Simulated scan of single mutants.
Amino acid sequence: MDMPNEPAWRIALFAGLADQLRTRALFLEYEESELPIKEIKRRLMAEHPEQAQLIQVSFMARNQTFADDESVVSRHDELALLPPVSGGSGDDPAHADGSSPSDQRYAVTHSPLVAEKVSRLVAHPDHGAILLFIGTTREWTNGQRTVKLEYEAYEPMAMASLRAIGEEIAERWPGTLCAIHHRIGTVDIGEASVVIAVSSAHRQQGYEASRYAIERLKQTVPIWKKEVYEDGSEWKGHQQGPWNPLLPN
């Protein structure tokens, strides 16, 4: 009796990697049911030599969690190959109606961001400081005029990553509250792409936690930014040295 064929390996692609390979997902007819990530990347680099450098620096996500190249993954896992993220330099926030305030503190949305709304999510009667960080689209960078930005996200993993940042902040600065809303899609000049609100009992904790939030966002959250210029466009990845989302926080 013939056994049913195993499903193909499926690897989702995003941002510049999807553009260069001209597909949003790879379907790979590998015989093995399990493979080390480094072997999958080796095969992909051999099959796509022109994109080998970008594949090499990309990280695999297994079931919406970053995995190192030594990890073994299965054809039945949810797999995505993620190029370096850029962070913040559905039409509604990604949570269901009726969700708790703690859930509402984290959102990935196509809608314009409202700083006051994000600020209210961290208001607390025992806190003496609320800090807002608002990342906006600037028109000129190094003499080049930007027309707009286009953001893309691996949304379920991005939401989990934003919540993880909030949990890290709560552990490092007990009692501190954090909210992060990030916009995706087209963000025009002067509009906000990310709003981070932090409240704390004392301002020093708030300053430290706010800076930590944006730096971790750029390091670990799978959101990518395409800068659209007057004469072309370019995906912007991690710009702070080699990208490694698995480095300790």
Rank of each mutant, 00 (worst) to 15 (best):
K117F: 12
K117H: 12
S119T: 14
R120Y: 07
R120V: 00
L121S: 03
V122D: 00
A123I: 13
H124C: 11
G128H: 11
G128R: 14
G128M: 07
A129C: 15
A129I: 15
I130R: 13
L131V: 15
L132Y: 03
L132W: 07
I134G: 13
I134Q: 15
T136D: 10
T137E: 13
R138F: 09
R138I: 12
W140F: 13
G143D: 07
Q144V: 13
R145K: 13
R145C: 10
R145E: 11
V147Q: 09
E150Y: 15
Y151A: 02
E152G: 08
E152F: 11
Y154V: 03
Y154L: 10
E155N: 09
E155H: 03
P156L: 05
P156E: 01
M157Y: 00
M157R: 05
A158D: 07
A158L: 01
A158M: 02
M159W: 00
M159D: 05
A160E: 12
A160L: 08
L162C: 06
R163K: 14
I165G: 00
G166D: 06
G166R: 07
E168I: 00
E168D: 10
E168T: 07
I169Y: 04
I169E: 03
A170W: 12
A170I: 09
R172T: 15
W173R: 08
W173T: 06
W173N: 04
W173C: 08
W173M: 07
P174L: 03
G175V: 14
L177G: 05
L177P: 01
I180C: 04
R183M: 01
G185Y: 06
V187L: 10
I189T: 15
I189D: 14
E191R: 15
E191L: 04
S193W: 07
V194F: 03
I196L: 06
S199I: 05
S200D: 09
S200T: 11
R203E: 10
Q204E: 13
Q204V: 15
Q205A: 13
G206P: 05
G206M: 06
G206I: 03
Y207T: 14
A209S: 09
S210P: 10
R211T: 15
A213I: 00
I214C: 04
I214N: 11
R216Y: 00
L217G: 10
Q219E: 08
T220R: 14
P222N: 01
P222Y: 05
I223N: 02
I223R: 03
K226T: 03
K226C: 03
E227Y: 10
E227F: 02
D231V: 07
D231Q: 11
G232Y: 01
S233D: 13
E234C: 10
E234R: 15
W235P: 00
W235Y: 06
K236A: 02
K236Q: 12
H238C: 01
H238P: 07
Q239R: 12
Q240R: 15
P242S: 09
P245K: 00
L246G: 00
L247C: 05
L247Q: 08
L247A: 10
L247V: 06
